[in-house]
């Protein structure tokens, strides 16, 4: 089984420091090998218990917009900011 750890880190939007990559990759492969040891389970006769769901009712959460935005890195005109994505 071939696993491309760099591709996985790209998918997860994560970078691994280059000087640690080799050991990280080796440990990652060990973990994948460990978790792959699962017995075959034919569980066709075991049905998961369906979860009871409540109605999805909108209600006032008691938190205002200013409070909700107060943890953002930057807020301009009541909007979150992000790097420019469209070239002018």
């Amino acid at each position: 089984m071939e696993i491309n750890v760099r591709k996985i880190s790209d998918l997860a939007a994560l970078e691994i420091d280059e000087d640690q990559f080799q050991s990280f990759e080796a440990q990652f492969m060990d973990i994948v090998n460990m978790v792959s040891e699962l017995p075959e389970c034919s569980d066709g006769d075991i049905l998961p218990e369906p979860m009871k769901l409540r109605d999805d009712t909108p209600e006032d959460g008691g938190v205002n917009q200013t409070e909700l935005m107060s943890n953002a890195h930057e807020v301009v005109g009541n909007c979150f900011t992000a790097p420019q994505t469209v070239e002018c």
Binding site: I3, V5, I8, S9, L11, A12, A13, L14, E15, I16, Q20, F24, Q27, F28, I31, V32, V35, A82, P83, T85
Partner: peptide, 28 residues
């Protein structure tokens, strides 16, 4: 620079090694 780069760098600098390992295992 770009939005994608901001995501990647913020997550890479903000998370420690064990959290990265678990996220990557989950992604895999």
């Amino acid at each position: 620079g770009s939005l994608a780069e901001m995501y990647r760098k913020s997550r890479s600098e903000g998370f420690g090694t064990e959290v990265k390992r678990r996220i990557m295992l989950g992604t895999f």
